[in-house]
Simulated assay, not measured.
Amino acid sequence: MPAGLEVKNSPTGAGRGVFATRAFKKGEEIERCPMLVADEDRGDDLESGAEGYVFGWGDGRTALALGYGSLYNHRYDPNATTTETGDELVITATRKIAVGDEIYINYMGTAQTGVWFDVL
């Protein structure tokens, strides 16, 4: 389990989410998530059993973030951001995050070109 994080049900009704068990400062790295990336012709294989947790990774590829990477919920005004660094997705705080806060990212800020659900 990544230090300072836990997964529990989101009070927003968005299913499970990632929550802080310690405070994070603005600009602090929250998590580095290794990525499993499938080529365009193998995306269905990766999605099998992980439907709803995979997303586009550019050039028609499909990705699954390990660690808690695929469990962060979306918000247009997030408290964290993502950076793609080759084979990792780095989650970084964009403002102070207190103990107990849910950590949100903006899915439109990733390689994903659309989402399959109603966004908050």
Rank of each mutant, 00 (worst) to 15 (best):
T82A: 07
D41F: 00
L46M: 04
G17I: 04
T81I: 11
E29G: 12
T110L: 11
L64R: 03
V18K: 08
T21Q: 00
L5E: 05
V37K: 12
A20P: 03
D45G: 14
G100L: 01
G67D: 03
D39A: 15
P78H: 05
K25W: 09
G13R: 01
G27F: 08
S10I: 02
R75Y: 12
P11R: 07
G60P: 10
T82V: 14
G109V: 09
G52H: 11
G100Y: 01
T94R: 04
G109N: 15
I91E: 00
G109Y: 04
V7Q: 05
L120I: 14
K96T: 08
A80W: 05
N9D: 00
F24C: 13
Y107S: 01
G56M: 13
A14S: 03
T82H: 12
N73V: 01
V99Y: 02
K26I: 15
V54S: 02
M35Y: 04
Y68K: 00
G49M: 02
E40R: 13
T81E: 08
Y107F: 08
D41M: 02
M1G: 12
N106T: 12
D59W: 06
I97Q: 10
A50V: 11
G60D: 08
F19S: 06
G56R: 09
G56K: 13
G52E: 04
A38Y: 11
G67S: 09
D87P: 10
V90C: 07
A3D: 03
A20R: 01
L66W: 11
R95K: 09
E40C: 14
T85H: 13
G58D: 12
D44G: 07
D87R: 15
A80L: 05
R42Y: 06
D59C: 10
E31F: 03
V99G: 02
A65G: 15
M35W: 05
F19P: 04
D118E: 06
T113F: 11
W116H: 12
A80Q: 12
P11I: 07
G114K: 05
G17Q: 00
Y107P: 03
E29A: 11
V18C: 06
D101W: 02
E31T: 07
I97G: 13
P78K: 00
T92Q: 03
D45T: 14
G49R: 00
N9P: 10
N106G: 14
Q112F: 03
Y68T: 09
A14K: 04
V54A: 07
E6F: 02
D59P: 12
L5Q: 10
G17N: 03
A23M: 00
R61Q: 12
G13V: 01
Y76S: 11
N9F: 08
G114V: 07
E28R: 04
D77F: 07
R16M: 14
F24Q: 12
A20W: 00
E40H: 14
W116V: 02
T94S: 13
G58K: 14
P34W: 05
P34G: 13
G43P: 09
A20F: 01
N9K: 06
K26R: 10
G69D: 12
G60H: 10
A80H: 09
W57C: 13
Y76E: 09
T21C: 03
A3E: 02
N73L: 00
T82S: 12
F55N: 05
E40A: 15
V37T: 14
P11V: 07
D101Q: 02
